[in-house]
Design a protein around this nucleic acid. Structure first.
Lengths: 233, 233
DNA sequence: CCACCACTCAAACAACTGTTTTAAACGTAC
DNA sequence: GTACGTTTAAAACAGTTGTTTGAGTGGTGG
């Protein structure tokens, strides 16, 4: 386990940040999530972090680079965790101790996301919402930076899901993964299409509750029969 | 049909806008979707609309009010369409010509969304993406303005879905609706969690293709057995 | 003591923001 | 023609934005 060569579990611990740089990152993280990239000024960040304005341009080059650093700090370890889960599942299957079913594959995504949401430092929960924002307002910088890592992750999930759903075409598998990941992502991010406007009975903030409701939904959706059951009206 | 009193199909055609006001609305719509609210300056809007800068503050009071107008112009007729679909389904059920199944209820949402996506003026497709943005970056103004109408819509869908899924508790129905609407919304908006970073086989821009893949997924997810099939590992 | 280092500080920079103002053009009714 | 309300034009408003500057801090090794 320790010496698996091509695994990503043991790689680069990421850059270490100084005391004030970390304070900037933490403050910026919360504000970026709350207000968005454009709406958060450097002065707001430095004020919340209790550091000097010029510090952000000293430690990070620019505001955009700061945003990238905020994102990368959380994304890298999370992606590693996802890959570790997939490796573990493959190992269990190879050992005959498990099979590739949809729920097993999806739990390789849910568990890291759940861990993020329960991160006691709250940084993880903020990151999920930040990622969700990045998804709809697509900043070129982040997209370029992370296309590699995220593309790799998606490829791994695709083959795993394809093995769990051998009756589906690869195009259909890609669609199912797309839909499933999207609903889980926004669920964990707390983007309540119901709650945002007008109140609803659903209080989607307890991570365990999210999992309990979202996993059956996603597993059933992914396992649905291929389209075209009846010609429709 | 024409004289149904409490239906929303026949209500308020909305404000009429002058020539230049319409040009401003159209230009702003595209830019708000592309860049977001904060990142779009009035000068960019007026330049794209080929009108004077002061025109936007003359026709609309402020930038925020403009945004609200942009949103409301598309939202109101779309919400009316959704209510009309629900009314029509209820009427067919009452006449014994149809039953409340999950697919029928969801099609009451899909058809208006599909119509938006196929709007030849492209404004509809832009609105779906705009709504998706509003959902994650939540602007208080829009939230306050639309909480009434959207809340009403959600309530209608909830009771309809509840009739289609009588075996589920009302809390579970709310969750299923939340998840289903969310995945459909982001699918129509083209928020490709797969495609955004790194390319994917899925080209999620053809509205009919979206429906073909997303409806079976959502119907299956909503119809899933209540959670707790097996104690899990 | 000095030089060097990573770092912080307050101040200033030019550019851009939403909004307002003032002046001019427009078509229409008297 | 002249007066009118409506719409547009360009300029100016005060405030904020990201970024840079240059002096100054405290600590470490020679």
């Amino acid at each position: 386990m320790k010496s698996s060569p091509s695994s990503a579990a043991d790689a680069d611990p990421g850059p270490k940040y100084s005391e004030t740089a970390t304070r900037i990152l933490n403050a910026a993280e919360g504000l970026f999530v709350e207000l968005g990239l454009e709406a958060t000024s450097l002065r707001l960040i430095t004020q919340k972090a209790a550091v000097n304005l010029a510090a952000v341009n000293y430690h990070f080059r620019s505001k955009d680079a700061l945003f990238e650093a905020v994102f990368a700090r959380r994304f890298a370890p999370w992606a590693r965790e996802c890959l570790r889960e997939l490796d573990a599942l493959e190992a269990r299957v190879a050992a005959g101790k498990a099979v590739f079913d949809v729920e097993a594959v999806m739990m390789c995504y849910v568990r890291p996301a759940l861990a993020l949401s329960k991160d006691p430092s709250l940084g993880g929960a903020l990151f999920v919402r930040l990622f969700s924002r990045v998804l709809v307002e697509n900043h070129r910088q982040v997209r370029e930076t992370l296309s590699r890592d995220w593309g790799h992750l998606v490829a791994r999930y695709t083959v795993a899901l394809g093995r769990a759903l051998p009756q589906l075409s690869s195009e259909e598998v890609a669609w199912r993964l797309h839909l499933g990941l999207s609903v889980m992502f926004h669920a964990f991010a707390g983007n309540d299409i119901l709650k945002l406007f007008g109140r609803s009975a659903v209080s989607a903030r307890d991570p365990d509750l999210i999992v309990k409701h979202v996993v059956p939904f996603v597993v059933a959706g992914m396992s649905a029969a291929p389209h075209g059951r009846h010609p429709a009206a």
